[in-house]
Design a binder for these strands. Structure first.
Lengths: 224, 224, 224, 224
DNA sequence: TATGAATGAGCGTTCATTCAT
DNA sequence: TATGAATGAACGCTCATTCAT
């Protein structure tokens, strides 16, 4: 009994991170408005007041949460390394497969999208940040590869070179599927990725049906 | 007096619909939890209590709202008529262009996605309904066209025939873009649609690059 | 039981006034910060929420309360009628006796001072209002009488003609006494007023000690 | 190291006093309820917990604060020395001028009044103490002078001899003025004191208008 | 002695919902 | 059918207080 009551753990350093993780789960599950600060605290095993020791208010907590998960994604994207010595086709494949890997394995990177759509109007800064730090740079990279591929003769010319965002379409669908149906409806990621890449490569290629069987996408441990 | 009463009657009969429209705007703007019943009422020009005359509670109102907008989409999809006498390629193009037309011109059909992601957990029935009435049937239709096209030799065999949902990827991206950035960031729909269809047709086609310039997508009056 | 529960009284018109009265009592007893909105509501016999039907927040309620009581005082002061046909001495006596009457009989007019001192920093507008609507005009009136009295030879010249606020000193002391000691310490108002006026008249008079016994001040029913 | 320790020691010894001073400023500015212990601590440059090392709780801190400032006043009043060899008129003048000097120069002695009115109900002991240690004895002294003056024939008989508190009226008005309007509205203390004493002396005197020009009151360095 | 992380009771405020009219 | 005054549960946030260090 005594020990119970005295269990006021002291760990200033780890607390913010713990709270941020808990907050992420709650915000993602209920949305900003329906999330109770107390539930977040409970998840961490502290009381309401503790949350306010580290965050000014619920909005600041949400903002920090969004930055926190955003960082994950930005970092992961930055770590997609493309070897300029390889063909543009390979670079494109690598980029997209890596992106699929991220999105398939990391639930956080998927839930970001939900936050974006659900709370973007209340937190426009969050949307801007993701546009500037994730979407725009990624599109630039993709566009670079496509344009280069046209120069080398690997890819045919088409409107795609000015619309690189289109490459994110299929992975987005997979993400949305995951967010909407969760564990309830099965989705064969590997075949889906294969279909996407196969379709894409054939769509972009200069030559007819090159025999480029799509490389296996990474297995998802995250239970998409 | 007569007109008065007639107006009143007409008013009464249309009330639920007016409320549903207002509710849609509010729910879409703020989300379920952050939406105030009073704001919905105000939009219609009635008082809070009136809303409760027609709807049991806020949840019922949301549910009805979701059904209401869903109906729009379901109906629109049902009206995509495909001529079996035309080529599979044309049928596919027609289907996708019609879908783009719907999604580009009708903000409601886009906002549904937001509701789905933001409130799907609270209203799983809504998600199921859309899966059953929109997504699944559409995928079946698409799959049918693809399979048929393979039989006729128009399309090559690929994983795509089992993953028809992939066709929705690019239009989904456009939708998400619209939902996230709204008027703030320009998006050239026509070229985007062209790029999508062009890429797709080349990706699916058996023969190299037949001269199938993508038909102009419908102009959007909706200001995506 | 049923009647109890159904006793949702409906009286939009009288509510604000009732609440203002209750708020006054609470604010005066506990101060702004320590007053609970719920206690105010309870005093009226409604619930917390009802208060917010009529007042935006606690500050607005305080402000309205202050205006409400202030009005009492301003009106009462305006109704002090001085007959210009009478001597300046009589006019001065009348004014002061009337003021004593107000302050002695009306607890509200006394408690205003408490609010002023206790909450003036938080509600500077309230202080300004009282200065402009009560203090300054009253001083002007008093100064007018004194100056006139000097012209007519009733009063001798002195610094007092430029410091009419000094006339409020003794009544202020009585007020403070009341606010501080309430029922606990006896205070003989009548003799106090007599002493004040007597001292004043002798202090102002040109001639020695004219036989001006101070008129009895009004009996206080308010239990100062 | 030595200086360090000495400083520390000195620091420790003076801590309660420092806290009391800080507490006074905060309580006076915000009132008891609205004052945050943390703000007091911050003023001293320590943390919240430290305050609780020296004071049991906020109430105890307030109580100590009130005693502390009260002591100032009590001591100052005790130091008003009256020469029994001088005339009663002079003694009365001396007393009042000294009191004006205290009140005009020492903000604390004025703010006490605010605490008294604002928090008197919560801390009745504070009020009693001031009554017993300041007000009552002062009135006794004043009454003594007046009665003596009547015996010596300096003062005429009047109700004032039983109502010595009236002498505090004008200085109270000055105090209230200061508390309410602070620096915002000018107040000419010297002329005000002159007017008060002049009026008083004429009011009390047996003989007509003795040529007793009021001695200059002490200049106020406190910026009333 | 001093700290500051943690607590939790408490209060202001909101808003879905009810119900008498 | 429509109103809107009233309700009261719920939640964000504050802050006095505690206590292990």
């Amino acid at each position: 009994m005594d020990t119970q009551k005295t269990q006021r753990t002291r760990r200033k350093e780890s607390r913010p991170g713990e709270i941020l993780d808990a907050a992420f789960e709650e915000f993602v599950e209920k949305g900003f408005a329906a999330t109770r600060v107390e539930d977040i605290a409970e998840r961490v095993g502290v009381t309401k007041g503790t949350v306010y020791v580290y965050f000014k208010d619920k909005e600041a907590l949400f903002d920090a949460t969004a930055r926190n998960v955003g960082q994950w994604l930005f970092t992961a994207m930055d770590q997609i390394h493309l070897d300029p010595a390889t063909s543009c086709r390979d670079q494109l494949l690598t980029f997209l497969k890596e992106f699929y890997r991220i999105v398939a394995n990391d639930r956080k990177s998927r839930e970001i999208l939900r936050l974006m759509l659900a709370e973007g109007r209340r937190f426009p800064g969050m949307v801007d940040r993701h546009y500037n730090e994730f979407f725009e740079p990624s599109c630039r990279r993709l566009q670079g590869i496509v344009k280069q591929g046209i120069l080398t003769g690997e890819f045919r010319e088409s409107n795609v070179q000015d619309m690189p965002e289109i490459f994110f379409g299929p992975s987005l669908l997979m993400t949305i599927w995951s967010l909407m149906f969760e564990e309830q409806r099965h989705f064969n990621i590997e075949r889906y990725v294969a279909a996407d890449l196969d379709l894409l490569m054939h769509g972009l290629a200069t030559r007819p049906a090159a025999s480029l069987e799509p490389i296996r996408p990474p297995s998802s441990q995250d239970g998409l």
